[in-house]
């Protein structure tokens, strides 16, 4: 079990009272799964990802990552994290940006160079090593940030709406590439999104969440095959799955109002 959460809860203290960002979340993610978290804003999907990454501290329940606490997992560099914005360092070239985690880990240069070449190849950015991030398009920048998250071969990739800021055409292409990448590498991926087609297209498991308090209302195992061309999105199974996710989201909302 890569991630195992039991009765996980997190409350924020704000100026006008407490906010229950997460309440009684129970979830298990197995190795090699592609799990999407979907729900309206405020449902705690990003917060849950940040708890896994030890960027937020839960206030109730327990969670293990790779059998360790999130803090131990973070210090063991057990995961790569892709943020909503690329967050590349503008003073570093593409290559040096991908090298950043390797420098911090203290990998020697020759070994690092091989890693960088390989990960840039994975996101199809070979040939752009010497460019600066501000010389690239938004989609390419986000691919660099994915390469950076892959650089030190963690088996767990956490992605927080990585394609949210991109247009639909670029997004479709990146989804296809991400799916191919996941099939090739056998990583475990936790992916936050608020796009139903994106979640259904990519995932083996879809976690539907609802706000106030943030909680899991449905966990759907996808019957779709592992191999997924883009036109699978017109198949009957795909549409049925998307329908079920939409129903789940709607149910979450009606409970809320």
């Amino acid at each position: 079990m890569v991630i195992s959460a039991k009765n996980l809860g997190l409350t924020f203290q704000t100026g006008d009272g407490t906010v229950e960002a997460l309440k009684d979340v129970n979830l298990e993610i197995k190795a090699g799964e592609f799990v999407s978290f979907i729900g309206p804003s405020g449902c705690g999907k990003t917060t849950f990802l940040r708890v896994i990454a030890d960027l937020e501290q839960p206030t109730a329940g327990t969670i293990t990552v790779d059998g360790k606490t999130p803090a131990e997992a973070r210090k063991a560099r057990a995961y790569g994290y892709v943020f909503q914005s690329p967050a590349l360092f503008p003073w570093r070239t593409v290559e040096k940006n991908v090298a950043l985690p390797l420098e911090i880990v203290g990998m020697d240069r020759r070994q690092a160079a091989a890693h960088i070449a390989r990960t840039l190849e994975l996101v199809e950015l070979g040939g752009f090593e010497k460019k600066y991030p501000w010389q690239l398009s938004g989609g390419m920048q986000q691919r660099v940030s994915i390469a950076r998250a892959l650089a030190f071969d963690a088996n767990l990739l956490l992605m927080d709406e990585p394609f949210g800021a991109l247009d639909e055409i670029v997004r479709d292409r990146l989804n296809e590439q991400l799916s191919a990448l996941w099939q090739r590498t056998a990583m475990t991926i936790a992916f936050v999104t608020h796009s139903i087609p994106e979640a259904v297209y990519l995932s083996t498991k879809i976690v539907v969440m609802s706000p106030r308090p943030g909680r899991v209302i449905d966990i759907i195992d996808s019957p779709l095959p592992k191999e997924r061309p883009l036109d699978i999105r017109e198949s009957a199974e795909f549409l049925a799955l998307a329908h079920r996710v939409r129903e789940g989201l709607r149910a979450g909302h009606s409970e809320d109002s």
Binding site: A53, L55, R74, R77, Y81, F89, E103, I104
Partner: peptide
């Protein structure tokens, strides 16, 4: 430096001086 960049350094378990040198001073 932005919150996301600092969170990024945290996910790498980068220490104070490493973050200072690689992110905050530039």
């Amino acid at each position: 430096s932005g919150h996301i960049e600092r969170d990024l350094m945290r996910t790498y378990a980068a220490g104070y001086f490493s973050t200072l040198l690689r992110l905050r001073l530039p």
